[in-house]
Computed example of a mutant assay.
Amino acid sequence: MPSSASAAAPPPPLERSYRRLLRVLPRGYRERWEDDVVAVLLDTEQEAAARAVVSEGPQRQDEERELVLLQRPRLREVVGVLGLAVRLHLAAPSTPGASARSRAVGDAARLTALLGLLPAAYGVVDLALLPWQSRQPGWSQLTPADGVEWVAGCLAALLTWTLLVAGHRRTAVGVAVAGMVVPWLISGAQLSPWALQPRELVVWLVLLVPLLSVAAWHRDAPAPSPRWWWALPAAVAVVFGLWGLETAHATGASFAADPLVAGAALAAGWRRPHSGWLGAAGLLGLVALVWGVVTLGYLAGTPLGEGMAAATVLAAVTTAASGLVVLLAVVRLRVLARAGRLVEHAEVGPEAC
């Protein structure tokens, strides 16, 4: 009969490591499947170790099985669990084991990635206007690194959105990460994210929300509707129009771009009560709100001429509009949820509105 001491023996290091790793999974999924997942992972590692020494006999295989339990999880297993966590937290309609809330969050994140196409639109406009801008007086003050960083950022934003709509989701994620890292490396790594103050780091992360939302387009997610191809020309037309207003001395006209996109998502979610559209409106409104607050902080320390005064007023108006979009999206979501009128798991595409 085993003693109480042996019965209460602590689990091996590999099992403890796996259980700590599985904490990244949603609580409901973990409570139901944690023991099964850990058992499968342990059996897989032990059997792989035993097969590696199969020619040395059963005793050697048993020794390898015991030694494996003293090791740490391999990188491949860690990446697999993290990928599962992304799929469950940002779930798609076909993701097995995901909750309704995770599917709603996933819908909102995927729409945020598609609607966060303004960087791509700005990339098209900036590249199209590059010959004209290169002849402006301020262009000579830019260093070659500044020019390369600018063009690289434009291309990365355009490629990320194009690859995403074309269905090359893994490549889009890679380009998005490269677009975030490469310009930082080109600039000489002068601004380390880990060197930022907590408040600055929060602002930095919030402004990257549309880019980070690309991760929601995992293998379970449905392909974007082909109708999304019309969104980029529309956004380019809006950006060109705002650029024309800026050129016509309507300083600060470009501040309206982000609230316009967030407002369009809110209108779509309001007309058809889909939690994805309303969630995307809230996220994009939050990005526009943060950007507006940062802009107002910058303008507050700038001498106010005639143009800057108008820009400050417009920045204040667009910031207030962004905050209103966030408030209306949250209130609408809560009202519809209480009434049970939310449409869940609709196809992610313009026709879903």
Rank of each mutant, 00 (worst) to 15 (best):
R74K: 10
A223Y: 03
H89Q: 11
G282C: 11
V54S: 15
A265M: 01
A215Y: 05
S140I: 12
A48S: 13
A300M: 11
A39Q: 13
T44S: 14
W33I: 04
L201W: 09
G123W: 06
Q141D: 15
P12R: 11
L207S: 01
G28S: 15
L159N: 00
A235M: 06
G188C: 01
E347Y: 00
T247S: 13
R338N: 11
L129S: 13
S94H: 07
E56P: 01
M180H: 04
G276D: 06
V86S: 06
A221E: 02
A98R: 00
V202N: 03
G285I: 06
S55F: 11
S99D: 13
R87E: 15
G28P: 03
V287N: 02
G188S: 05
Q61C: 09
Q59W: 08
A92T: 02
P58R: 05
V78I: 14
P58Q: 05
A157C: 10
A346Q: 10
G285C: 04
T95L: 07
G282F: 00
Y18M: 13
M308I: 14
D220F: 13
G97Q: 08
L196D: 01
G282K: 03
T251D: 14
L70C: 09
A120S: 10
R16Q: 15
H249W: 12
G285K: 00
P210E: 04
G292K: 02
R101S: 14
E31F: 10
G57M: 07
D220W: 13
T171D: 09
E45R: 15
L159S: 12
C154G: 01
R170M: 08
P273N: 01
D36M: 13
A39N: 10
P73D: 11
E56V: 00
L191P: 03
H168N: 09
L191W: 07
M180F: 09
A49Q: 11
Q141C: 02
R103Q: 10
L342G: 07
E64S: 04
V335F: 05
E351N: 02
Y298C: 00
Y18P: 05
L201E: 09
A8M: 12
V261A: 11
E66H: 01
A253C: 04
R341I: 00
R60T: 11
A264Q: 04
P350V: 09
L67I: 04
A320E: 08
V206N: 00
R101E: 14
V209M: 09
L42D: 08
Q59E: 15
E351R: 10
R72S: 15
L70P: 07
L70Q: 14
L90S: 05
A309S: 13
R72V: 11
E64Q: 15
S55Y: 10
S134N: 08
A221Q: 03
R341P: 04
G123Q: 05
V177H: 02
R16E: 14
L82W: 12
L342Q: 06
R20V: 05
L242E: 02
V40Q: 15
